[in-house]
Design a protein around this nucleic acid. Structure first.
Lengths: 224, 224
DNA sequence: TCAAAAGTGTTAGATTTACACCCATGA
DNA sequence: TCATGGGTGTAAATCTAACACTTTTGA
């Protein structure tokens, strides 16, 4: 039995805004579009939603296809469906953003897919309404990072407070006071100091911290 | 020319969460579903997105079809697309929420469409994933009302501070201190006291206020 | 005259912000 | 030895939260 046959169907795609942090800057993964129309234009990575998969699954599949990684943090940005957003056909696209540590993305795979990390402040003109999607994703993430521990998705398991602060500043696009920032971190017991020292970025060495998710779920009060 | 023909198309619908304020409580407009599957179940009002209209337009059209009103405040909640969310077919739905003063919705029209206002704390089980949609819309609205002047979409043009506070409390689901609330309002110059008095709800009478959108756009610092 | 809603300030506590110097170490 | 990034505390200012009584007037 078919219920809705008198209505018309449309193509639905997903586009993924993959944010990565490379120790200094917040970046986005974009590539040259491999299909017509718009072949060769800068574009987000995306794919079509097939008839027998949920939209979140389609986004996960797309993300996995590109990065080979599963279980990345991913959230929906929203649906984009202006009538002529896609120059070829009528396609509704659902945007997602995902977070990843740049180092976790295999360089070989990156080159194979011919995508690259570009600074969020230097994003070129993208295919269709992809710039809009990125802007919206950024707005959502800027909000989110203040109330939710997503930073740790962008950092290595062990990180220094300077890294954490640099990331935070890169996301919100503003500087914060070091002492005040560290004070706030100290109040969060689920950000645990290990007794390991990172010597890569300073002669003196910096204490490495770790996010304890279990502790977080238990006492959860996050506020940056 | 057809670009994406090898991919499969799906039905896309919109569902609208219409919030209304009736001087006391925050309500949502729901009705009995008029089509199979799920005929007779409580449901949001919705409709299909047609091939030649944008999703925002589809939502506007749907909202207009139900209320006869245009230019209502409306924002997207997000896309819902689990594979089996709709018991009949694979349908992806994009949820929107809209704000309206209950009095602005013609009772005759309401009855014709056989929809009714139900308290947000007494929402029955709804068709498909509509309860989820309502929850998410509420979460977004609760956030939004603190940083953006959406209250005035739910109130008459002229309102008392008590009404404004009651609405605010109904939305966030908590009580606030009257004096502190009024202090904050006094700081917002775009909420203007008129010299009109409302005598409906008290013997003494309460000053009526008005939201001045022009003044708001100019000095815009909103924080409840 | 009294019930019911409108209206109004102050204070203590909590939070936020601004700010500058010493430390440890490898080159 | 010195350049580099790591690490630390205090005080002023601002914001938030708690709190109770007087006013007006129609019934």
């Amino acid at each position: 039995m078919t219920y809705y046959k008198e209505y018309s169907k449309v193509w639905v795609s997903v586009d993924v805004i993959i944010f990565g942090f490379d120790e200094k800057k917040l970046k986005v993964l974009i590539g040259r579009r491999q299909m017509d129309p718009g072949r060769g234009e800068w574009s987000l990575y995306g794919g079509f939603v097939s008839a027998n998969e949920g939209i979140d699954d389609a986004a996960k599949r797309t993300l996995y296809g590109l990065t080979g990684l599963n279980n990345l943090y991913m959230r929906q940005v929203g649906a984009f469906g202006s009538i002529d957003r896609d120059p070829g056909e009528r396609v509704i696209s659902i945007a997602y953003y995902a977070l990843i540590n740049v180092k976790d993305y295999d360089e070989k795979l990156r080159k194979e897919h011919d995508v690259q990390w570009v600074d969020i402040n230097e994003i070129p003109i993208l295919y269709s309404d992809h710039n809009l999607m990125v802007e919206q994703a950024l707005r959502i993430m800027r909000q989110k990072i203040k109330t939710s521990p997503i930073s740790f998705q962008l950092l290595p398991q062990l990180f220094t407070l300077t890294q954490l602060q640099t990331l935070y500043e890169a996301v919100i696009g503003d500087e914060v006071d070091k002492r005040n920032f560290r004070k706030r971190i100290k109040d969060m017991d689920f950000i645990e100091k290990t007794n390991l020292i990172d010597k890569k970025t300073s002669k003196r060495g910096a204490a490495l911290y770790r996010f304890n998710n279990k502790a977080f779920t238990e006492d959860s009060n996050f506020k940056l």
